[in-house]
Write a protein that binds this DNA or RNA. Structure first.
Length: 550
DNA sequence: TGGGCTTGCGCC
DNA sequence: AAAGGGCGCAAGCCCA
């Protein structure tokens, strides 16, 4: 059963729909939390416009749900998926469901056809009517050549939305005192106002002295470039890797200054005051926030937490973290997508890069890693570019897969992930004619190649994101089966980073949690690739603080 | 003073 | 050693 929820004139309506799409009844809901609590034991799939506007209030009321269907996220997938390109949904003009999250709030006019169950799937909803949209989406999936594939993606995406809300609700344990101690040991104690901390100030004085530039502000690239020039150091930019090439007594302290200044500005005391409240860091996760299907976050830079400060992520008394990351996820995804038996076998032992070396394709593990990264990102020069032909010879199917994706992008075509997320439409770059200059032509060619690098990476990054969603959905379900206590009283997910999860768990449950994480990884592999014998090994660590992992 | 752009760097 | 994919954020800088 589905229960479609909608807010109409500040009231909440619920429509029950059977699995075959038949209407079972409509009612007004006066107390949402009470209603959901009463219906949830029937295991309905809750259908709503936007999980982030419905679920937090339920969690605050102490209610979790098992399944949902997030119409806004699913609309975005169906709108551009090659698997549903012919659907009424995809061929309709842009509407409210294509707008950014904050705009998709159903405010139908009084007397509008909200909950009209005889919606014509070909009709375009003028208003954000969730029932009409749900009907359109069901029709799009049913009419797809591979309804199971796209259906799995929509389910995974929606499960991700629930997990994002739950992780924000639970928060990542964060000890302000430990964070302060880390900052103090690296930067010196917290300064008053906006002064530089002592150690940063000391290094700054050394840099100024060595560059004979007493007023230098290294935080200003222009100012720094000028000072370096005066000292006879010619560089095109002030990036660290470029400065590292230079031999000059000012360089070492300058690089040190940059490192400390970065820590201070990105994750210093100001960050701590802003983002850590009552011992928890609560970033705003944005499922589907990246075109490839990866999550984004807003606020606090949760996906960029530097290793330096992870020591402040400390489990509660009597609790532990189980940290799991999928080893070499993207190359394994590529091997599986391409059905490249050789590369799948190279990964069977647990270390894919070692397996590539063992096959004789390259000499060292480092080379294997660089070559694989180059294949997935589209490197053309350097060591990575030079290793490509050898990789291509050893693993023709895997490399052909990414090469085809790149060529398709260069031609302006759309590429699609394993479960059916498609890349944004490209342009045709070769539409130049002889009236255009040589420079224009070469610019067009470079843009075309750049788009090809994007589509090349899209299929791998996007399919890896699908794997991660399936993994997390399975983890969430298995955690619920392991322990039926309330979310934050039982083992629960507290962090996610593309190919890595952190579970906060009572110390006595670390073993079953570790087992479940590995089982979930295997299940994710089957969901994407069926019975293809591809393995997704995990590196699992049980720790008291996140800094100890890896 | 505030918005938008660029630069640089953290994560995968 | 620094090429190649995806992000978010802070600071400087420029301009209205």
């Amino acid at each position: 059963m589905f229960i479609v929820l909608a807010r109409v004139d500040s009231r909440t309506m619920a429509a029950k729909i059977s699995d075959d799409g038949g209407a079972l009844g409509i009612e007004y809901v006066s107390d949402l939390a009470e209603f959901v609590r009463k219906e949830e034991p029937q295991h309905p799939r809750w259908v709503w416009d936007d999980t982030s506007t419905w679920y937090p209030e339920l969690l605050a009321a102490g209610i979790r749900i098992e399944r949902c269907f997030d119409l806004r996220l699913c609309h975005a997938i169906l709108r551009s998926s090659a698997l549903t390109a012919e659907s009424a949904l995809a061929t309709a003009p842009q509407g409210v469901w294509d707008a950014p999250a904050s705009v998709v709030t159903p405010r139908p006019e009084r007397g509008a056809a909200l909950f009209d169950l005889d919606v014509d799937p070909g009709a375009v909803p003028v208003l954000a009517d969730p029932l009409a949209e749900f009907t359109l989406q069901r029709a799009a999936v049913a009419g797809s050549a591979e309804p199971g594939r796209i259906g799995r993606l929509l389910a995974a995406e929606s499960a991700g939305a629930l997990i994002a809300a739950e992780m924000r609700f639970a928060g990542l344990p964060w000890r302000a005192d430990a964070h302060d101690a880390i900052l103090t040991s690296i930067l010196g104690s917290r300064p008053l106002e906006s002064a530089r901390p002592q150690k940063l100030q000391e290094i700054l004085e050394i840099v100024r002295e060595k560059l004979e530039s007493p007023d230098l502000n290294p935080d200003s690239p222009a100012d720094l470039l000028r000072a370096l020039g005066v000292a006879g150091l010619q560089v095109a930019s002030t990036r660290s890797w470029e400065l590292k090439q230079l031999k000059h007594p000012a360089i070492a302290p300058l690089l040190e200054y940059k490192k400390l200044a970065r820590l201070l500005s990105a994750n210093g005391w100001h960050w701590l005051d802003t983002w850590v409240v009552n011992g928890r860091f609560r970033p705003d996760y944005v499922p589907g926030g990246v075109v490839t299907g990866r999550w984004a976050t807003s606020g606090g830079g949760a996906l960029q937490l530097p290793k330096q400060v992870r020591g402040a992520v400390i489990a509660d008394e009597g609790w532990k973290f189980v940290v799991a990351d999928a080893s070499q996820l993207e190359p394994r995804i590529l091997a599986a997508m391409a059905g490249d038996r050789g590369m799948v076998e190279a990964g069977a032992t647990g270390d894919l890069y070692a397996g590539i070396v063992a096959s004789g394709a390259v000499e060292t593990r480092d080379q294997a890693k660089i070559a694989m990264l180059g294949a997935m990102y589209g490197a053309t020069t350097g060591e990575s570019g030079r290793l490509m032909p050898r990789l291509s010879q050893a693993y023709p199917r895997a490399i052909a897969k990414v090469e085809e994706a790149a060529r398709a992008g260069e031609r302006g075509e759309v590429v699609t992930t394993q479960l059916g997320r498609s890349s944004p439409p490209g342009q045709r770059f070769e539409g130049w004619n002889e009236a255009r200059s040589e420079a224009d032509t070469s610019r067009a060619r470079e843009r075309s190649r750049a788009w090809g690098r994007f589509t090349r990476n899209f299929i791998v990054q996007g399919t890896a994101a699908e794997w991660a969603l399936c993994w997390m959905a399975s983890i969430r379900r298995r955690l619920g089966e392991l322990d039926d206590r309330w979310l934050t009283d039982a083992p629960h997910l507290v962090f996610f980073l593309h190919d890595e999860v952190v579970v906060h768990t009572p110390a006595e449950l670390t073993v079953p949690v570790s087992v479940l994480l590995a089982d979930a990884a295997a299940e994710a592999g089957r969901l994407l690739f069926g019975e293809l014998p591809v393995t997704f090994p995990l590196t699992i660590a049980t720790v008291d603080n996140y800094g100890e992992a890896k």
